[in-house]
Amino acid sequence: MEQFIKKKIIQVKKGDQSAFSDVVAFYQDKIYQHCYRMLGNRHEAEDMAQEAFIRAFVNIDSFDENRKFSTWLYRIATNLTIDRMRKRKPDYHLDAEIKGTEGLDMYSQLASTERLPGEEVESRDLQRYIHHEISQLPSKYRSIIMLRYLEEFSLKEISEILDVPLGTVKTRIHRGREALRKRLRHV
C-alpha cells in the first residue's frame, strides 16, 4: 500500500491532479475519523478533513517522498483541528455534553431512529460509550491515545506528527492510559 501511495504522490507532484483522488479515497475514513475524534462534531470534522486534503495537495511539493505520507497527512490534519479548537466559538453542538449531566449529549436527547435487537445494541452502545470517554480526555492526551491505538502509529511517528519530543509523548500516553483506565474500569 505504501508503494501504491508513493506512486500516486509522485504522479500528483508531476501535475496529475486526478491521481490525488486515489490518495483521498484511501485516507478519507482515517482522516475524517481522526478529525471527528479530535473535534467531536461531524460537520466540523468533515470541513477540517477536507481542508487537510486540500492543504496536502497545495503543499505537495514540500513533502519529501522518502518519508511516510500518512505521518505528514496526519500532521496537517492534527494541526488544523488543534487550530480549530483554539478558535472555536462557544456555540452549541449536538455533540456537546449537557451541563450538569454525566456523558449525556444532545444526541441522547434525540429519539433513536433505529432499533437494533439485543446484543448488537449493547456492543454499539459500548463502542459509543468508549468513544465518548476518549473524547472527554484533554486533547493533548486524546490525540496521542488515538494515534497510538486507533491509527496504530509508533511513538516515534506520533512525536513527528505532533512535533513533540518523544519523552513528552511517553509521559502523555502514560497519563492518557491511566485516565482512561479509571474511566473504563467499571465497563
Partner: peptide, 19 residues
C-alpha cells in the same frame, strides 16, 4: 476497549467534494 471504539466512515461523496 480503546481499540474497539466506534469506527467511522467519511460522509458519502467526500473524495468528490475534495477533488
Amino acid at each position: 476497549l480503546i481499540r474497539s471504539a466506534e469506527r467511522m466512515e467519511a460522509p458519502v461523496g467526500f473524495t468528490e467534494n475534495v477533488m
